[in-house]
Design a protein around this nucleic acid. Structure first.
Lengths: 347, 347
DNA sequence: TTGTATGCGTTATCAA
DNA sequence: TTGATAACGCATACAA
């Protein structure tokens, strides 16, 4: 690919003049500007960003790391980030960590080596992540996305997970539910999930209700009815469950319906995240919505500010309760409906 | 951040030796190697990829452009691409085009300027995309993903959309359906959607059935029941519909159910793409699955081969019919069920 | 307004 | 085995 020097030669000017034609056109006489531009198009010249980055000691690139792109929460947030970054003239290097701390470490290392101007990371657990120590002796601005902030830790942007889940729980309580459970992926792998469970317990206790032990599913985004079945029987059976994320809630609803359970008549199911798809389903998914678009946008804006040397304020972004048909009043009869073993249509 | 020269100084060697310590350790004596390594850790040295990229005239970066990340088809494929690329030591620059041809053009231009080693693009319409002309006079390897191949055009990877939709149609016909419609987003914006419509018509005619005019929805991934309602009334009302993508199918099912329609008893609904979520729902979504993971992986592998100067074969990847509860035999009675206006739970 | 010269951090070539 | 040096392509300080 043609370089600046060949353009300059063809135009009959020096490299410096050719460079200025693109960087600061107003400092070049119209006549020579034309000559250079002509030469450039003739040679299909395309400035080499790598050289520019080396020279400028800045890449106009932001490194993004998310746990997965198979969860729409991250995909939708990333989409918003990409649009915002592009508007500001920045590109995104995108990586996935699979919630694996050692991969998190390697990825950050690599992005620093690439000299990204900033990092937007979503890690499994912010407090004891290995990347923290790496980053705290670096000058590259770094922002945690979705992770909760910690005193003395990295700046973080997202909702107040604890308060949000507490609010979700209160919503169910206000509808009359007393036996409310919480369903999560394995091990409360992420710090957000832990905070959400804490918020749930807090709201339960506030109302003199007994927080239930966590109902753990073997997978993060896929419900196993068998894990929930015990809690749906007996006199104290649950009338509502909160899920740590929407995909889990949606798949749980599917499993319940397949077992001839009715949602919300037999069991109310509430999600967390507020992914778009939830509104399209029937019953539509009641969920505590995280403003994913806003989070993505604000993350980029804040990161750009940090790159400029500022310390932007990073308040919690507002969560919002989204009503949905998957949640209703508790059933009046205390008799448990029959839970059949799921029947699948796929042979 | 420390550079090679400071490491060399601290270790008491030349820049060249320091460089070799990392590039070709076997060509450095163990003693000096140790010294350099110690100096490197002491200074927290991290090689500057930008400089390396400039020098090597190769970036080990691949530029990826997708229409959107809000559709799981692209997000899931991107996830697979990221994993595959990382394994091969490549990074991904990710951009979204929003199906906008002018943005497509600008994005490709920018990535070429960044000197990515290869491009993986999903464009709206491959044949008359402006990027084609740009790219065909470039040497940077480029691969179209999901777009159909064209003679003399860019290499492309994906399924045979026409054959796949024909097969989907035949599936419905085999179940006894005779009045089958097709639902799509606005304007058949993408070349894939057009091919799918062609496949549908072909299969219909093969069986002596009349292809129906396309039912266009105002949005790509969100169904409006009003657009479909006319086709659900009268003696020749549809008993099954094919949707150009899964999100459209899912939202259509939701709308139908909300209007007290039963799927599949009153209307069978089939999707296209086979996103993971479809299997979790009840009724589970019957869909023609594109092997998104495999497409992502193969795209990277093929692109790497192209970067090596090879011309890998690019056959269609196999699509697969995924059975699901959203499709069944046509209703026996020809009387149309009542279609109520949708009732939402959200005030 | 234009040109000259230098450096960004690395690696490869060539000598020693 | 090691060192000196040039070059990757660009942008800027300085001089003209």
């Amino acid at each position: 690919m043609a370089d600046l020097l060949s353009v300059a030669k063809l135009a009959g000017v020096s490299r410096a003049t050719a460079s200025r034609t693109f960087a600061t056109p107003e400092r070049v006489s119209p006549a020579t500007r034309r000559k250079v531009e002509d030469a450039a198009t003739q040679l299909a010249f395309r400035p080499n960003k790598v050289a520019r980055q080396l020279r400028a000691r800045a890449t106009k690139m932001i490194g993004v790391m998310v746990p997965s792109l198979n969860n729409p929460v991250f995909a939708e947030q990333l989409h918003a980030m990409e649009v915002a970054a592009r508007e500001a003239g920045y590109s995104l290097i995108v990586t996935t960590s699979g919630y694996d701390p050692s991969r998190e470490q390697a990825i950050v290392e690599e992005m620093l080596s690439q000299r990204v101007d900033g990092l937007a990371l979503t890690v499994a657990v912010a407090r004891d992540s290995a990347v923290l120590t790496t980053l705290q002796r670096e000058t590259t601005p770094c922002l945690l996305v979705y992770n909760p902030p910690h005193p003395g830790g990295l700046p973080a942007i997202g909702v107040d997970n604890r308060a949000a889940m507490a609010e979700a729980t209160r919503h169910l309580i206000a509808l009359g539910h007393r036996h409310i459970g919480m369903v999560a992926g394995p091990l409360l792998q992420s710090d957000r999930a832990r905070l959400r469970y804490a918020g749930y317990r807090q709201a339960m206790r506030e109302h003199g209700l007994a927080p239930q032990p966590l109902i753990e599913m073997p997978r993060h985004t896929q419900a196993e009815l068998a894990c929930l079945a015990p809690a749906l029987a007996g006199p104290n059976r649950l009338t509502a469950v909160l899920c740590t994320n929407d995909l889990l809630a949606i798949s749980l609803i599917g499993e319940l319906q397949r077992a001839t359970f009715s949602v919300p008549d037999d069991l109310s199911v509430m999600g967390f995240d507020g992914i778009d798809l939830g509104r399209r389903l029937y019953p539509s998914l009641c969920s505590m919505e995280q403003p994913r678009i806003e989070i993505g946008r604000a993350a980029i804006a804040s990161l750009l500010a940090m790159i400029q040397g500022q310390s932007p304020p990073l308040p919690f972004l507002p969560h919002a309760l989204r009503e949905g048909e998957s949640v209703g009043a508790p059933p009046t009869s205390r008799q448990a409906p029959t839970l059949r073993s799921p029947q699948r249509n796929t042979p």
